[in-house]
Simulated assay, not measured.
Amino acid sequence: MAELNLGYRYWLYVGNRGFDYKNFDIVLQALQIQQEETEAHLVCFGGGILTDKEVARFEELKLSAKVHQISGNDELLSTYYANAHCLVYPSKYEGFGLPPLEAMATGCPVIASNAPPMPEIIGNAGLYFNPESPQELASIIQTLDRHTRESLIDLGVQHVAKYTWELSSEQTVAFYKSLSPQ
């Protein structure tokens, strides 16, 4: 896997930014809170090109030089995961949420909202914040030192091993069998 040399530490946000439930703005607010304490940037992977409204928001928060949008294939995404300080997953709700599992599989610590179903999916392999509190998100990211990151990476790699296509298909078959009369 290629090593990224961006010249700065970054938080990673993956996916669409345009829906309110994705809660993207809270990440911007947390980055603004952390501006003076960290040189961290925010890399937004996927989700389409930045809109004029987003660019205006970055300018309003004085973050224009710290927010970057990248698109690419799964291999490039994997490289960004592997080199990120953390994945920030702030959704207020999700159907499932693959990015946290993808992040754990590549050795990227996960910080997610405590909204369902994130705690059920991520378990003890991530850190959680109230999706209404940018201060709490900023504080949690600030606690992500080398030791905590290494611990989360180890827990994440172990945890994501529970999610395999084989296990998923076995559980699906067992579920359907349980519905059919014996």
Rank of each mutant, 00 (worst) to 15 (best):
T106W: 05
P131D: 06
P131R: 00
E59F: 13
A174M: 12
F45L: 02
Y163H: 10
R149V: 01
S178Y: 07
S168H: 14
H68K: 07
L4K: 05
M104T: 10
S71P: 11
L137R: 02
E3V: 02
A125I: 13
S78P: 11
K92Y: 03
K92L: 11
Y93P: 00
T172N: 09
L127T: 01
C44F: 09
M118F: 08
G18L: 10
M104V: 10
E54V: 05
L42D: 02
T38V: 15
E94T: 01
L179N: 04
C44H: 03
Q135A: 12
R9W: 15
L167A: 15
G95C: 12
Q29R: 14
G107E: 08
H68D: 11
M1T: 13
F96T: 05
P116S: 13
S91P: 09
Q29K: 15
V157Y: 11
Y93Q: 02
T172S: 08
T143G: 07
L137Y: 07
S64E: 13
P131I: 07
N16V: 04
Q29S: 15
N114C: 11
L101F: 07
K92S: 03
E102S: 06
R17H: 11
E37C: 08
T148Y: 13
G18R: 14
S91T: 02
K162H: 15
K22P: 07
V88F: 04
C108R: 01
Q135E: 12
A56D: 03
F58R: 00
A30T: 01
F45N: 01
G95T: 15
G47S: 09
G18D: 10
L63A: 03
A138K: 02
Y21R: 03
S133H: 10
S178A: 07
H85T: 08
F129H: 04
I153C: 03
E136H: 11
S139F: 15
I121R: 02
I140L: 06
E54H: 09
L6P: 05
K22Y: 09
V88H: 01
A138R: 01
S180F: 11
E94F: 09
A40G: 12
V160C: 04
C44R: 00
Y89S: 01
